[in-house]
Design a protein around this nucleic acid. Structure first.
Lengths: 343, 343
DNA sequence: GCTCTGATTGTTAGCGCTACCAGCTGGGGC
DNA sequence: GCCCCAGCTGGTAGCGCTAACAATCAGAGC
């Protein structure tokens, strides 16, 4: 090792362990220990090492460390469209939790959602040798994709349904939909229409099921549910159809964006909310309280989902056992878009 | 690591280069070349190597590669609150561009925004030896933070103002604000009120400047601009004050979320949009077209910003020269929330 | 005084890969 | 026929770090 003429302004190569060892007058191994297992080094020695570390601006080389330990300290998140509020919030929470546990997060967002793309996302992260992966893709293709995972890599999934070979964190979509639907029935509506998300999305399905189950249990007629694509545009398009049907007095919509479109369609048709039609959304995006009227909706706690997912993954990585899926309960937030049935 | 006898019975350690070399009957070096510089290996040899690679399911170990090449193939993105539409979209675009160039993206989202947090974000990524960093934090603290960057690591910034020691991609906030303000004046409004973003945000400042410059150039009175925090709630709160002032006929709001709050405040005060008051937002979030009324706003092309940022960073990493800041022009999207001045 | 123990530090040997240089082959030019 | 050159392949030497064991030393116990 040529000694680096370090702190002077001659900008040489970054310091390595041996440089620190030399400056501190100890062996490289002692430096390594001082950094990774401080209590196995005499305090004075440690102090000398630390001084040298600071003086040289030494940073451990993660590649070298990983090469020998086999761990990278990196988690991967495979997610569909992190532009959407839900995935973005989940990702954010995962990242925060990861940081607090000295992990960093590598992200693979998916343009399309199908078995291939999920596999590719996983492979891409795996090729970077992440220590584990969270899959945020509540889509039926995820189930397929997950079945073909190469083994040996800890993986957990968010909202991926139940017949999945990996641990999952789930929002109780069904329960949320049940609450929304019951709320509307309790206001005196004969029945509740539903605009769903894309049918191959797991969470969209759960909401349909919850909605339907309540209507059936109460012996109400079950209108046909039309499917949108989560966008405000699709809500607007489908909402126009509902607006033309005077028998519609209560609508449960699969997410808040679509609901925004529905509200506009109803307004354009001259139907007042909530006087003529009650509307309930899903998600509780931050803007929902400022819709017109302020939106009654079902709040998903994405932060909790993300934290659970991280914890579950950490358990898997560390071999700690975990017990079944973790369920996060959504919560009905009543605002002004729902009201008593007309007449 | 001892080979893990985990699940299946023949579960051995993952294949390494030597395994492939042995199976293909060549040296490790040739395998490495077949993978990294295919045209320096005879086609038949390459085919044999590839067959062995597939048979063994070999994946290069990135840590080992990085250790010797010094490159990691990982980019870092430091961003404030990736839950917001702008940062999320920018991040998404960066990630897409990175993927197409065989980079993966490591993310450090910031809870708070100050010099310390930005420095920490950068350090965290640097500790993972990313090859370069994009900073998405259009906040004055970023400027401070960037001045204290340890040198030697390629960094580019998004919307970070101009007195910054790193290359930047900027949206022409000023230009966007100018267009919005001119649009309102051209509809016959006497002057234009403004609700700004937080004053220590670079982009909020640019919008204020653009707005003010037009009013001054046209000799109009310049009302005081009140500052919000980007949230719909702050827009609502500030909007209530404006709604009480009958002389207000045109408002330019710093982003679409705040605008949503403003629209609600105006409606609650009985002021019609656009008949009594014209409103223009900023960003063009996907929902803006479904606000009530559909929002006239200034579209920022976040995708382009992200792609530019990636390209700029790649240039820096590869030592290619780059020429000054890259400017992305926002575009006025006229919908129905703006109209002729009353009377 | 001498052995034994535990605390502390050092030595050795790689982790899996690629840069660098050397060696080998066969065909063209003399 | 011999040399040279290009095209391909192989050997060697680390990159920076830590696991595993070895060595050292002071003090406790006899």
């Amino acid at each position: 090792m040529t000694p680096s003429s370090d702190d002077g302004r001659a900008r040489t190569r970054p310091a390595v362990l041996d440089d620190v060892a030399e400056l501190a007058g100890v062996s490289a191994m002692t430096v390594s220990r001082a950094l990774n297992a401080p209590d196995r080094v005499r305090p004075e020695t440690r102090a000398r090492v630390m001084a040298a570390v600071n003086k040289l601006g030494y940073r451990p080389n993660p590649a070298a460390r990983q090469l020998v330990t086999g761990r990278s300290g990196v988690l991967g998140v495979v997610s569909f469209d992190t532009t959407l509020y839900g995935p973005a919030s989940t990702l954010y929470a995962i990242e925060q939790a990861a940081r607090q546990n000295d992990y960093v997060v590598n992200i693979a967002s998916l343009g399309a959602l199908n078995r291939r793309s999920i596999g590719e996302g996983v492979e891409r992260l795996r090729a970077q040798s992440v220590d584990g992966i969270v899959i945020v893709a509540p889509h039926e293709s995820a189930a397929d994709g997950l079945r073909h995972l190469s083994p040996g890599l800890p993986v957990v999934a968010v909202d991926a349904g139940e017949d999945i070979p990996v641990p999952v964190v789930m929002v109780d979509q069904r329960g949320g939909a049940v609450r929304a639907t019951r709320h509307l029935l309790s206001l005196g509506h004969e029945t509740v229409w539903h605009l769903s998300g894309p049918p191959n999305w797991i969470d969209a399905r759960g909401r349909v099921e919850g909605w339907r189950s309540v209507l059936e249990a109460e012996g109400r007629s079950v209108p046909e549910a039309a499917a949108g694509d989560w966008s405000a545009y699709s809500g607007y398009r489908l909402g126009k159809r509902l607006a033309d049907d005077p028998s519609v007095t209560a609508v449960f919509v699969a997410n808040d964006q679509m609901t925004l479109g529905v509200l506009r369609a109803l307004r354009e048709a001259g139907r007042r909310v909530p006087e003529d039609v009650s509307v309930v959304g899903f998600d509780d995006v931050p803007e929902a309280a400022y819709f017109w009227p302020p939106l009654t909706t079902v709040r998903q706690n994405f932060g909790e989902v993300g934290r659970h997912a991280f914890r579950l993954l950490l358990d898997r990585i560390q071999g700690t056992e975990q017990e079944g899926p973790r369920i996060v309960e959504p919560e009905l937030v009543v605002r002004e878009s729902s009201g008593p049935a007309p007449h």
